[in-house]
Simulated assay, not measured.
Amino acid sequence: MITINDKKIKLQIWDTAGQESFRSIARSYYRGAAGALLVYDITKRDTFNHLQSWLEDTRKNSSSHIVIVLIGNKSDLENQRVVQKEEGEAFAREHGMVFLETSARTATNVEEAFLCIAKGIYRKILQGQFDLSSEGSGVKIGPQPSSVRTSGSTARSGSQGSGDRLGCC
């Protein structure tokens, strides 16, 4: 559970481990996903080289509104780095994604990565880009206080322009 703009948001997270051997199984996870973290290891070039095909799978098998964040992991191993930060930034920029470097070992930017994806999804909810009445949207609306109303396939906050303050990363 996290809070964004005083709204409680529950994230359900599935880790496909990025293994090529699980690729066909991973495709089934994309259906109904509202967000995805594409993670590569900054100390292993091949993980970066496979990003294009993982991104294609993600976009092919998910909603056109999926929020995707690119993560370069193991930033604590700077002395073993083979993928430069600028390469990750360029890939993310080219494909319209947000980019972060993280370290699972030290927890650097790990929480920020999940907050970033949640903010992106929330922003798209406010903009009406997810069909909230569809199970396949990857978003479920729980009990709502009276200040939030659902109407058709959109949910709007009682305060105007709140989506503009959801800057990510």
Rank of each mutant, 00 (worst) to 15 (best):
A155Q: 09
V39C: 04
I68C: 03
L115M: 15
S151P: 00
G142W: 02
S62T: 09
G136I: 01
I68P: 05
G167I: 12
I68D: 00
E111Q: 15
Y29G: 02
A118W: 04
D41A: 04
P143D: 13
A90V: 04
V110H: 11
I25F: 11
I25S: 07
G167F: 11
A26N: 03
R105M: 11
F22G: 01
S134G: 01
S137A: 08
G32I: 01
A92N: 10
S157Y: 12
S63V: 02
R93N: 14
K124N: 14
L126P: 08
S147V: 07
S137G: 06
T16E: 03
K85N: 13
C116Y: 04
T154D: 02
A155I: 12
E87V: 06
T106S: 14
I121H: 10
S133R: 15
R81N: 01
P143H: 11
Q127Y: 03
G72L: 00
L38Q: 04
D41L: 08
V110N: 09
A118N: 09
F48L: 12
G32K: 04
I13F: 10
Y40A: 07
L126T: 08
T150F: 01
G35P: 07
K8P: 10
S153T: 11
F91I: 11
G167Q: 13
L132E: 02
S146E: 09
V83P: 05
D46H: 13
G18W: 03
S62H: 09
K10D: 11
G161Q: 11
F22Y: 15
R93K: 15
Y29W: 08
G142S: 10
S63F: 01
R27M: 10
N61K: 01
I2V: 15
W54I: 03
D57S: 07
Q144S: 09
I141A: 06
E94D: 15
A118R: 03
S103Q: 01
A107V: 07
T3S: 15
Q19F: 05
N61T: 00
I117W: 05
A36W: 01
G167L: 14
V139N: 09
R105I: 05
S21K: 12
T106W: 01
S63C: 07
G35R: 08
L126M: 12
G167K: 11
S157F: 10
S153K: 13
M1F: 11
S159Q: 14
V98R: 14
S24M: 06
R105G: 01
E20T: 10
S133I: 01
Y122N: 09
A118L: 08
E86H: 12
F91A: 12
H50S: 15
T43R: 06
A90D: 11
K60L: 08
T3F: 13
K60F: 11
F99R: 08
